[in-house]
């Protein structure tokens, strides 16, 4: 092990440690909002940062996604063929723009991924009502760049996975017990910046548009 490591740790351990009052540390923030209230708050927060939220259900979500693709004039849609949503869309491919599947390593099709994909569609692990947030865990089926590189990100969120707070989601979904993925993400709107004279601009590096379909 390096000399720097030994020196740093030696200096830190040589110190008499402060006694810390930890009584306040463990309090878990959560709210008793019913499902309608969680949906209302989630939608309000998302819309406040210029994300689109569409209400749908198990019977008509496919129509909703098809309409969104049509309205945005998408030439193609990138998705995973293996998720529940991806399977259903694949079976109804004639109602959608050209479907592209994330089946290869990014190195094998980086040019196309960067410059020729109109939109990416992902599932979500859940949502957070307090802040209007989507939870995404990267996986072999739905890699990190699917929600990052295309200019439009369409996300499907099941409303029974909508938690009041981040703390509640981490606890209820047992993140610690499951073990974290290589990349866990909270997404709360389209990419934005106020670095030029505090004027809000969208689509700096990530998607310019975020579209959430509630199912």
């Amino acid at each position: 092990m390096s000399k720097a490591r030994a020196n740093i740790l030696q200096r830190l351990t040589a110190v008499e440690r402060p006694v810390v009052d930890l009584s306040a540390r463990e309090s878990l923030s959560r709210f008793d909002w019913d499902k309608a209230e969680r949906i209302r708050r989630f939608t309000e927060r998302m819309q406040a940062v210029r994300a689109e939220v569409h209400q749908a259900d198990r019977a008509n979500w496919l129509d909703t996604v098809a309409t969104i693709c049509q309205q945005k004039g998408l030439n193609n849609l990138l998705l995973s063929p293996t998720t529940e949503w991806g399977q259903a869309i694949t079976q109804n491919a004639e109602r959608f723009p050209t479907l592209k599947y994330y089946e290869r390593s990014i190195e094998d099709w980086k040019q196309e991924m960067f410059y020729e994909v109109d939109a990416g569609l992902t599932s979500t692990l859940g949502g957070i009502a307090e802040t209007g947030t989507l939870i995404l865990w990267s996986s072999p089926d739905e890699p990190r760049t699917l929600s990052l590189v295309p200019p439009i990100h369409i996300a499907i969120l099941e409303t029974d996975k909508l938690y009041s707070t981040f703390a509640e989601a981490v606890q209820e979904q047992g993140w610690l017990e499951q073990g974290l993925p290589t990349n866990a993400l909270l997404i709360s709107g389209p990419s934005r910046s106020a670095d030029i004279a505090q004027v809000l601009a969208y689509g700096v590096h990530g998607p310019k548009e975020l579209v959430v379909v509630l199912v």
Binding site: E130, T131, P140, R144, T182, A184, I187, A194
Partner: peptide, 24 residues
């Protein structure tokens, strides 16, 4: 910091690309 309830992205990285993953 900026008076936002949360930032657009909160990115939690726990490792490099795994053998079966396609990016990262």
């Amino acid at each position: 910091a900026t008076g936002q309830p949360i930032t657009t992205y909160f990115n939690m990285i726990s490792g490099p690309r795994k053998p079966d993953e396609k990016d990262g």
